[in-house]
């Protein structure tokens, strides 16, 4: 198991390098530079600044310098927030992003699995159609539509919750961002759970359990639940990734000072190092969480665990 984990971490290195290279090229391919603005700088000052940030070097040289920094854990200085390094900026924004992301995943798992189980066990009833119908909407409506709508209903019209993260100090400011982020995941997890449990309930070993006179609830609890959760564990990796990318939109809409919002402002500012730093951070997170998910899978499925 340890060897497997180690091999997976080693295998992630080329993936990360590739992600960095693509992000690096895309940032540099965008027109304009970090220090272009309406006020044109005198050429010698601009030259000085560019030299200070090594922007006068060739692209491969800059890439090499950047990779060297990443290996040491140094993501470089921010071009826009001059007093901070990129690592400091990300570190400061991580807690709130993590809190919202983790809560969204938790909410999605609890609500999604419960809804999916009920729909599967009450298959083809009104309850089932309700769950699958709502899930369909949850999957098809994008976050950038759903989030402002929630603000309109719960903050502007009903005035139950603050419209913006900064509009309150309590836990209620987390509610709308978390729900907005969780909604598509709830929908997907509910559908996945439903399909998976229906599949397991049709398996030969559940037929055996029925032949043994077990009640449906006992069958679900002792025989069907665990195998029905396996596809869900595989989905957790993509779910984490979707929540991370979703956080970019959600944090922007609700004004949450997290990593995602930095990504948008940094892109607009052509803050090369900050954009790159966040990309590297996101990529590393996705790779790491996928590794955790795979190990979890191996742990839950005895056929993988005990060979």
């Amino acid at each position: 198991m340890l060897r497997y984990a180690f091999a997976r971490i080693l295998g992630a290195i080329p993936t990360l390098l590739l992600v960095i290279a693509i992000a690096f090229l895309m940032v540099h391919a965008a027109p304009g530079g970090p220090f272009d603005s309406e006020r044109v700088l005198p050429p010698d000052i601009k030259e000085n600044i560019e030299r200070a940030y090594h922007l006068d070097e060739t692209l491969p040289q800059q890439f090499y310098r950047y990779i060297k920094g990443v290996v040491r854990g140094d993501l470089g200085p921010s071009y826009r927030y001059r007093d901070f390094s990129v690592s400091e900026l990300i570190a400061g924004a991580i807690p709130v992003t993590m809190r919202i992301g983790a809560l969204a995943i938790l909410l999605a798992l609890i609500v999604g699995i419960s809804a999916g189980l009920i729909a599967a066990l009450r298959r083809n009833t009104v309850l089932d159609r309700l769950v699958t119908g709502i899930a369909m909407i949850g999957i098809s409506v994008p976050v950038f539509v759903f989030a402002p709508l929630m603000v309109l209903v719960f903050a502007v019209t009903l005035k139950w919750l603050p419209a913006s993260y900064t509009g309150s100090d309590g836990a209620d400011r987390l509610l709308l961002p978390v729900i907005a982020l969780a909604m598509p995941q709830i929908a997907f997890i509910a559908r996945l759970t439903r399909a998976s449990l229906i599949d397991v309930m049709n398996s030969d070993y559940v037929r055996t359990a029925k032949a043994q006179g077990l009640k449906t609830l006992s069958i679900v609890r002792y025989h069907a639940f665990r195998p029905a959760m396996l596809p869900l564990i595989s989905y957790l990796g993509p779910a984490f990734a979707a929540v991370l990318t979703g956080s970019v939109v959600v944090e922007h809409v609700f004004g949450v000072p997290g990593v995602g919002r930095f990504l948008i402002t940094a892109s607009a500012n052509r803050d090369y190092t900050l954009v790159l730093g966040i990309t590297v951070f996101y990529a590393a997170m996705v790779v790491f969480l996928n590794l955790v998910v795979d190990l979890l899978y191996a742990f839950v499925d005895p056929r993988v665990r005990t060979r």
Partner: peptide, 22 residues
């Protein structure tokens, strides 16, 4: 369920599929 297991029981063809692998 009053009858299954206590009065009538069944053995299936493919024991790999009929036993829960988990």
């Amino acid at each position: 369920n009053q009858y299954r297991a206590r009065r009538i029981a069944m053995v299936f063809q493919d024991p790999m599929a009929a036993l829960n692998p988990y």
